[in-house]
Amino acid sequence: MAAVGEREAGHVPVMLERCVDALAPAAVPGAVFVDATLGLGGHSEALLARLPRIRLIGLDRDPQALARAGGRLARFADRTDLVHAVYDELPEVLGRLGVPEIHGILFDLGVSSLQLDVRERGFAYAYDAPLDMRMDQTAPLTAQEVVNTYSAQDLARILREYGEERFAGRVAAAIVAARAKEPFTTTGPLAELVRESIPAATRRTGGHPAKRTFQALRIEVNAELTVLERAIPAAVDALAVGGRIAVLAYHSLEDRPVKRVLAAGASSTAPPGLPIAPPGTEPLLRLLTRGAQEPAEDEVAQNPRAASAKFRAAERVRKGAVAQRMPGGGERGEKHRRTGNRRS
């Protein structure tokens, strides 16, 4: 394993210039930016270096990431606040820090390079490691508990919904049968069982057959989609007029809720056919990207982890609550707030 400094020095943040370029116009004097997914701090470092007038709040649920990023950003310590928090806790964090509004926010979703590269974290199917997958290792729920205690029906549901696994029922049944003989404790036996459960013709394409199962388990363990559905509306609502949001998603399950919130914010709520939009129905956002942008071929060649990235950005053009424009208003978010997994 490479030394920490070497590994971080070689870490290439995804679509770095595009993220910074999208957020930079919001860097007015006294601006507060948020890196909602701090990770190893690469995006934050670039923002702080290029925008010397901003204050940056970095959030991460992973204490290891916070420690590593803190070292990387040490020279900017007078302009940074690094906070152990899940990104849907943004309103509470801003309240504690006395920040009434923010001017830029970045989300780099999915699993971080740190979590993938440290074998003991159990995120990867390429080698045997403890079956963990917690982004925050102080949280109670592990992948081992999910695999060994969830019913076949619940396992099939999360594999189908979070992994888009065509053979979810078959894989779930195989897991339940195997764990009755011996519980799963590491990633290797699980990855092999999933591979054997997928029909041979399907195994020949699409990469490792366990990829979708491991994604689904990771999302379940960390309540990623539940958190995301709360976090994006909260981030938009925290933006000052002229503030900007930028989001990097890595699969359609992440990109869909981002697209839905930004589209709702950029739409008028006036009934169609009116010659003039009534006050309060005008769009709250101006979309800065046309659809989801993808990385250039040369970036993917340099940084293969950028291959699946989808980038969206928007600017706040007036005040108003985007959550109220979503189907069901705030009810869905509140239901998830009561039932979703939380950081302990």
Rank of each mutant, 00 (worst) to 15 (best):
L51M: 13
K310M: 12
G70H: 08
G242Q: 13
Y162N: 09
G169Y: 01
L284H: 02
P183S: 10
A46H: 07
P304A: 14
M1E: 10
A124G: 12
A85F: 08
A77Y: 12
E92H: 08
R332M: 06
G330P: 00
L82H: 06
F107M: 12
E331F: 11
L253C: 02
A201Q: 15
R218V: 09
R53A: 13
A249V: 03
T289E: 09
A191T: 04
A307S: 14
F167R: 07
V86H: 01
R338V: 09
G340K: 12
V221D: 01
V247Y: 02
A124C: 10
G329W: 00
V241F: 05
V147R: 06
G10Y: 02
E224Y: 01
R325E: 07
G328D: 12
P271W: 15
S197R: 06
R72C: 11
G206L: 08
R337H: 07
S151I: 05
A24I: 05
A306M: 10
R119C: 06
E315I: 06
A2R: 15
A200M: 10
L159P: 01
R18S: 12
E164L: 04
R170M: 09
M1T: 15
G163M: 13
L48H: 04
D88L: 01
V322Y: 02
N341A: 13
A126H: 05
L23G: 03
L114N: 09
P278E: 14
P13I: 14
E8D: 09
L253T: 10
G340M: 15
I245Y: 00
E315M: 09
T226F: 06
N222V: 06
D154T: 09
V34G: 02
H336Y: 07
V300M: 07
L159I: 05
Q324M: 10
A210D: 13
H43W: 09
L248K: 04
I105F: 03
V32T: 15
S44W: 02
R170K: 12
H336F: 06
P140H: 08
E182V: 11
L131M: 03
G163N: 09
R121L: 11
P29L: 14
L225Y: 01
Y87S: 01
G30Y: 02
A216S: 13
F107K: 05
D154R: 08
D237I: 05
V118A: 14
V194M: 10
P209T: 14
G10I: 04
R332H: 10
N222Q: 03
A9G: 07
D60F: 08
A249L: 02
R96G: 05
L114M: 14
A2V: 12
E92R: 13
E89W: 00
G71P: 05
H251W: 01
P283H: 08
H251M: 05
R286L: 10
R170H: 08
G330M: 06
A270F: 10
R160L: 14
D78K: 15
Q115M: 14
Q302M: 12
P257E: 11
T186H: 06
A266N: 03
D62R: 03
A24D: 03
P189V: 15
G207F: 05
R318L: 08
T142I: 07
V34A: 04
H43C: 11
R72A: 10
Y87I: 05
K259Y: 04
G98F: 02
L287F: 01
L248S: 08
